[in-house]
Design a protein around this nucleic acid. Structure first.
Lengths: 119, 119
DNA sequence: TTATGTGGTGACCTCCCGGAAACCACCCTG
DNA sequence: CAGGGTGGTTTCCGGGAGGTCACCACATAA
């Protein structure tokens, strides 16, 4: 087996890290891992994301095998996104980052104030 | 206590998530959490990062209270970066993402091939 | 006397991310 | 029939992120 190393610029893991160590990917994976969800519902829940960016992010996550996309020929057509078994193994880890942010934001903001006033 | 929510665009946690759910932040925090390290050594280990981007990222992580910067008046001057107790609680979670990438890259690449050939 | 190492900063330029809006297809409602 | 709403994709264009290069001050090495 080849020695995969995210610290090497040319290693494919670096590109993958760029996909998953990402604000939008974190929010999407977390939400989708809870329950399958449709495009515009997801868009409404992830406040501030544009349709284009959401569409691109979903496509990338689908390509990486982390989420499933099912299109139904209803009118208007509906598309449902769900987590894959592979995606689920990542979702638990990536959602821990968001949860950490929510738990520690006050400590971080205090640190920022200290840093800014020191300057 | 206010209800912090990363899914709200205006919540400060969203900004924090943008700082930490980041390729470079992940690589830096992981490496710095192992052992204190100097600027140029870090730059050499994280292949492909430029001095400018590394400098910016380090400053942001320091401002957020995740890493410590200690400058020594040696000649030439040396600067050492180390992990803070707060940063350590995040480093374990964020390094799990990089490790996941290294462990699952082959499955992901297989998924990508399948996706691309389907098109 | 050059070259190297150290930790950056600033200027310049380029490229790509992402926001806004158009667009498509179709149903419902007035 | 005309207009509005919904779900999802795609085009267009400006701004900001990020790469490259130069530079600083100084000591040691070649």
């Amino acid at each position: 087996m080849p020695p995969y190393d995210v610290y090497s610029a040319s290693c494919p893991t670096r590109l993958l890290l760029d996909h998953i160590a990402d604000k939008w990917a974190a929010l999407i994976l977390w939400r989708v891992s809870v329950q399958p969800i449709r495009f515009n519902q997801l868009r409404r829940e992830i406040q501030g994301i544009s349709t284009k960016v959401l569409s691109q992010a979903l496509k990338r996550l689908e390509r990486d095998g982390l989420i499933d996309r099912k299109a139904f020929a209803t009118v208007p057509m509906t598309v449902e996104y769900s987590i894959t078994p592979l995606g689920l193994t990542l979702a638990s880890k990536i959602s821990a980052i968001s949860e950490w942010a929510e738990s520690n934001i006050e400590v971080v903001m205090a640190a920022q104030s200290r840093y800014d006033s020191a300057a």
